[in-house]
């Protein structure tokens, strides 16, 4: 019993590459809309106050109060251009959905090929985390279509990560070694990739917040940066949105660590052993706990907390890239050797 279906594994790889290409198309579209779209123009004239919308259940997000279209559009070339930009934006969303579908089928086909949950090595993990990032963004769009123009900021890290996954981190479809044959693994890794995918979104929002807050304090000298900052939602809203995402991810990450410990107890005879991977999971968890505390501590709100958030994401990245590749431990599932 080989357990691997070669042609299906091959199909999965093809779908993965296609998904990257489609995402890249969507990103170009989003960026075009961002650059030429109406949002920037209107806001640049009169910065509208940002408003928040309900995101029942999930993290609530921010919407810029976009002035409604005037009933009779004047035949102004700028407006025509803006609506063309908007059309590009909507097509980008369509592309993004198509990419997510292709991406999902790539993962599903790989699951069929290895006959197991397909996230037992870094390539598979990065692929799932990237999909979660895109889905999270699409879920946000469902409720807040006005945020569409930020799509490029979300897709850029996703595409980079998937590119890295498909090149440096790539490993062929393989059946699971005995230690990985556990449903706790499936739960553990699913939760980690969802939480980390979401925390990536939080980091993106935090970077945007820092840019916007810096511009609010002292406008950028560079016109390009200033233009970028002006088009962003209000600093306070970005900050809150970043917080809501952490508030959603932190319990998830906590559960993920607990499931990992349950699995380790069954597989290795101890629930915790300060293996490098475990140590970094602990560090990430503590840093995000710091972030939550900082937001409740006078003098640490705002920018200081934002930097802690980014430190947390830095720790996630370190855990994923450096610890898997450079530091060896029991969690040598990376499949890179």
């Amino acid at each position: 019993m080989s357990g691997i279906n070669g042609s299906m594994a091959h199909l999965s790889d093809g779908l993965f590459t296609t998904a990257i290409a489609v995402y890249a198309g969507a990103m170009v579209g989003f960026t075009a809309e961002y650059a030429f779209g109406r949002v920037g123009r209107k806001l640049a004239v009169a910065p509208a106050p940002a408003r928040e919308l309900v995101g029942a259940g999930g993290p609530s997000v921010v919407e810029d109060a976009l002035p409604a279209d005037p009933p009779d559009l004047p035949a102004d070339p700028a407006v025509a251009r803006a609506s063309r930009a908007e059309r590009i934006g909507w097509w980008s969303v369509v592309l993004c959905v198509a990419g997510a579908l292709i991406h999902t089928s790539s993962i599903a086909v790989r699951a069929l090929a290895v006959d197991a949950v397909p996230w037992s090595n870094m390539y598979e993990f990065a692929s799932v985390a990237g999909l979660v990032g895109v889905l999270a963004f699409l879920a946000v769009l469902w409720r807040l279509p006005a945020l569409r123009y930020l799509g490029g900021f979300v897709l850029l890290p996703v595409i980079l990560m998937m590119f890295l996954a498909g090149t440096v981190l790539y490993s062929k479809a393989q059946p699971l070694v005995p230690a990985l044959q556990s449903y706790w693994l499936a739960i553990h890794v699913t939760l980690v990739s969802i939480a980390e995918g979401a925390l990536m979104t939080s980091a993106v929002l935090t970077v945007l917040y820092l840019v916007k807050a810096r511009h609010d304090r002292k406008p950028f000298g560079s016109e390009r940066l200033a233009n970028l900052a002006v088009k962003l939602p209000a600093a306070e809203s970005l900050d809150k949105a970043a917080y809501r995402v952490v508030a959603f991810s932190f319990p998830l990450y906590t559960v993920a660590i607990i499931c990992g410990a349950i699995w380790a107890e069954a597989a290795w005879g101890r629930y915790w052993g300060w293996d490098p991977k475990e140590t970094w999971a602990f560090i990430v968890w503590v840093v995000y706990a710091c972030y939550l505390h900082a937001r409740a501590t006078a003098g640490w709100k705002g920018r200081a907390a934002a930097w802690i958030n980014l430190t947390g994401f830095g720790a996630i990245t370190f855990n994923f890239l450096i610890v898997n590749i450079v530091v060896s431990g029991l969690h040598s599932y990376a499949g890179l050797s």
Binding site: W274, P276, T279, W280, F282, I283, V286, V287, A289, C290, H293, A294, A296, T297, G299, W300, I308, A315, V323, V327
Partner: peptide, 24 residues
Amino acid sequence: AMRTALVLLFLLAVAAVPGSLLPQ
């Protein structure tokens, strides 16, 4: 104080770093 808790938490995270980078 909350601020102390924050600093201690941060110290805990930093203190764990060498434990993952140096052989134990």
